[in-house]
Design a protein around this nucleic acid. Structure first.
Lengths: 332, 332
DNA sequence: TATAGCACTTGAGAAATTGGAGTGCTAAAA
DNA sequence: TTTTAGCACTCCAATTTCTCAAGTGCTATA
């Protein structure tokens, strides 16, 4: 389909556009290919007809289309070794034994954000795979206590509970023991229903005054399944990219970043590193999202880099690859 | 200094500008004051000479200056009752007993953000006033454990610790007991130094293999003092304000919101509700920040509303006043 | 002290002008 | 068959010009 020179030209155009963010002209490629601009133009025309290139208007240079980027990512780019400078910055993170793995991941994505001016997101593990390991109940004052739930993966959540003064501390203790016995190993998601259908019916046998206690603990333990933790790096970085040069584009992307659905749109279930270009991202037509699932043993989630479609694919991919490797090395 | 009509005119101009975001002309005030536009113009000139009003260019209407807003806030505005509609939304929050106080505060500031299109920030309590109440150590796997610190105010922090396999679980237990005995009541801030100067010298007497354990716990317990929790409401809301109509303004304010110093700039130590207009805010010349310290008994921090200088001062102030009242009612 | 009248200033937007960068196409050369 | 030179054509982006409406300051008068 595509001749070799055409492939080379497509690659050159995309890489030039990634660097400069300006439409690429036939003339600017002459020296490189040692042919005349007219020859390049002929190939450009072919590439445009095949859908790999676009023009902004009839007499402008060419820019890559979404299809073009896709072809580039799938066929043309050559995953390089990570550059010495980049490597240096990342290495110090993962060889630093004082950092726990989660902090190391956060730091390393922040570094990617810093050196690329893209935005990074880490989506912490959802609680659905976490099994309740222990419920701790710690009194703070005479009618307040903190309920703490620890999962088998080391995830900790807590909530304050206020009890009426009538409740005896011994009863609290009993309730806590009962909860531990009955809920051990329960997926966090299932805690509310087990509370309601298995514990509520029998708690009266063990504990006086059980309504108050049951309600308090139900309240405390049933809100835990919710929130994923989201960690952004360089959220405002993407605004430095020249594609965001109008107020509307900026407001638009920022609103999306701040919206609540962002979490669902970013979550990735595939273990491979995946590239979602423009509309493929389901996030915004102007961005590319590169993401992957990660798994530290205790923890799993999504790593994502968000940049313009004109993203430096090779660089980001190799860096993510490296980080993923380090995580797997450490996380077992 | 200012005649009564001049005060009235200043007030009218500011309130009109708050409503419309457009310079106010002399003509537009004629009907209201039942004088000719020329008369209004004379007063406007005086107000401008006194520094309360500004013009964008020689033939434009007047807009309030920072000094004008300040005078308005200090002398002219009349704190109204909270409007029925606003009240309704807030009341349902604070009368809902299923919400703990912290969530109620978050929800209520989110409501302010929603109905005003300003941005709200809640700065959680710093740990400096928190005294260590308990250290819990919970094993997750055979070489991983979670260290949990609970403070007297019910604040909970946790960190995972990985130990070499050589460590005996009994020694961990002993260490944990020692830490609890020696650190009880210590301000979180002082934990690292006490670990180093009081515990390190003696831990060898109680625990075998203490270097490894000490190092692990030092690492786990000394990073707790740090992060304040920040809770934003409607972070992108402020972009809906017409003052942010150029790319630069938008990028600028967003970058500030995302910067790390924002926390220091927002933190408030005064118990009163304070108004910081424009440059007074030390945040951005284009915004006003209204903020106050809050104290729930278990928790203290800052509530802040960030909007354009052209903020609806009366409304925001009354709403914050109300919320502060509710917090104090509940928080004891 | 307030008003009517008028000259003056300015920004915002529309329309016209210009220059340059780039393309597509054709016909000739390799 | 592929490449190239040459040229007409298109469009944007930047600049200039023009016009209009909104609003002011000032002065003379009620």
């Amino acid at each position: 389909m595509l001749g070799q020179r055409q492939k080379d030209i497509l690659k050159a155009i995309i890489e030039e556009y990634i660097k400069t963010a300006r439409p690429v002209s036939s003339k600017s490629l002459c020296k490189k290919f040692k042919v005349s601009s007219a020859t390049i133009r002929n190939d450009m025309l072919d590439l445009e007809n095949l859908g790999y290139l676009e023009k902004q208007h009839i007499s402008s240079g060419r820019i890559p289309s979404e299809v073009g980027y896709r072809y580039y990512v799938d066929n043309l780019m050559e995953p390089k070794k990570i550059s010495g400078e980049d490597m240096l910055k990342l290495q110090t993170i993962f060889t630093n034994n004082n950092l726990d793995l989660n902090s190391a991941i956060e730091k390393s994505l922040e570094i990617i954000s810093d050196i690329t001016n893209y935005t990074s997101v880490i989506l912490g593990s959802a609680s659905k795979d976490n099994l309740l390991q222990k419920v701790e109940v710690i009194p703070i004052s005479n009618n307040t206590l903190v309920a703490i739930v620890i999962t088998d993966k080391g995830h900790v959540e807590n909530k304050q509970v206020t009890l009426p003064n009538t409740v005896d501390i011994k009863e609290v203790q009993k309730t806590s023991e009962l909860l531990n016995k009955m809920l051990f190993g329960t997926p966090l998601n299932d805690v509310p229903s087990r509370l309601e259908f298995e514990i509520k019916p029998i708690i009266g046998n063990y504990v006086k005054n059980y309504e108050v206690l049951y309600n308090a603990f139900y309240e405390a333990l049933s809100n835990f399944q919710g929130e994923k933790d989201v960690h952004w790096g360089g959220k405002a970085n993407i605004l430095k990219q020249p594609e965001f040069s109008t107020v509307d584009d900026v407001k638009n992307i920022i609103s999306k970043f701040e919206s609540k659905e962002i979490v669902n749109k970013i979550e990735e279930t595939d273990d491979e590193i995946k590239v979602y270009i423009g509309t493929e991202s389901a996030l915004d037509d102007n961005v590319t999202v590169i993401k992957t699932k990660y798994n530290t043993g205790q923890n799993e989630g999504t790593l994502a880099i968000i940049g313009p479609k004109r993203m430096d694919y090779e660089r980001v991919l190799t860096m993510l690859e490296y980080i993923k490797g380090e995580i797997e090395k450490k996380g077992d």
